[in-house]
């Protein structure tokens, strides 16, 4: 994020002066706060409901079951790690948290996994293949239920906010495959 908004604000001012739309730009300044508040109100409802459901899954052990099921598959992607290694455990928990859409839980787990990979594979100037793969998986969206987008769609008057689910799953799966394949190809030159 950083300086991006400042850059956009300067662009709008320059373009606004040039195109004579400065009055609209000025009223946008007043109105945008209200727009942000209504967006958050819409989001908070959906995030509360899914947060509640996911918390049931965490407490009942359903998430742990999912982690256990996912581990043999994840083990095939991250090669050279011991099946019971701390790094592979952290990676699996990170990926399951991502699947469930728990961004807040996934990031600390992922960072821990990166540090554990460094410990188990040795620190070097260049990232190991498993580090690259973990970062790539986290930079792709693997969330199963697109709750945030559904919330925004619902707020914008969609008749069926979740109708995009099949498209999202297909596109996520293909783009993840493309990213992983690209990583494999780039790693060949090592």
């Amino acid at each position: 994020m950083g300086k991006l908004p400042i850059f956009l604000i300067i662009c709008s001012t320059v373009y606004g002066v040039k195109a004579g739309t400065l009055p609209s730009v000025a009223s946008a300044v007043t109105e945008c706060g209200g727009a942000a508040v209504s967006l958050v109100i819409g989001l908070s409802g959906v995030m509360a409901v899914w947060g509640g459901l996911i918390n049931i899954a965490n407490r009942s052990g359903f998430s742990a079951l999912l982690t256990k099921t996912a581990k043999p598959i994840i083990c095939k992607i991250f090669k050279g790690l011991n099946y019971d290694s701390a790094a592979l455990n952290a990676i699996t928990m990170n990926i399951t948290a991502n699947l469930l859409g728990l961004g807040n839980a996934a990031t600390p787990l992922g960072l821990k996994a990166m540090k554990l990979l460094e410990e188990e594979e040795g620190a070097a100037d260049r990232p190991s293949k498993n580090m690259t793969l973990l970062a790539v998986i986290n930079a792709c969206s693997i969330q199963i239920i697109p709750t945030t987008v559904a919330a925004v769609r619902s707020g914008a008057g969609s008749k069926s906010p979740m109708e995009i689910l099949p498209c999202v799953l297909a596109v996520s799966a293909i783009s993840l495959s493309v990213a992983l394949l690209a990583a494999e190809v780039l790693e060949l030159g090592r």
Binding site: Y15, G16, V25, V29, A35, A36, W50
Partner: peptide
């Protein structure tokens, strides 16, 4: 927790909404 996470987004969203609203209103 879900509600808390959503409302913690508000300051950042205000910041970005300001930039994007201005950009759209300018016609750029």
């Amino acid at each position: 927790d879900g509600v808390k996470t959503a409302f913690e987004l508000l300051p950042t969203l205000c910041y970005l909404m300001l930039a994007i609203s201005m950009l759209r209103a300018s016609g750029a």
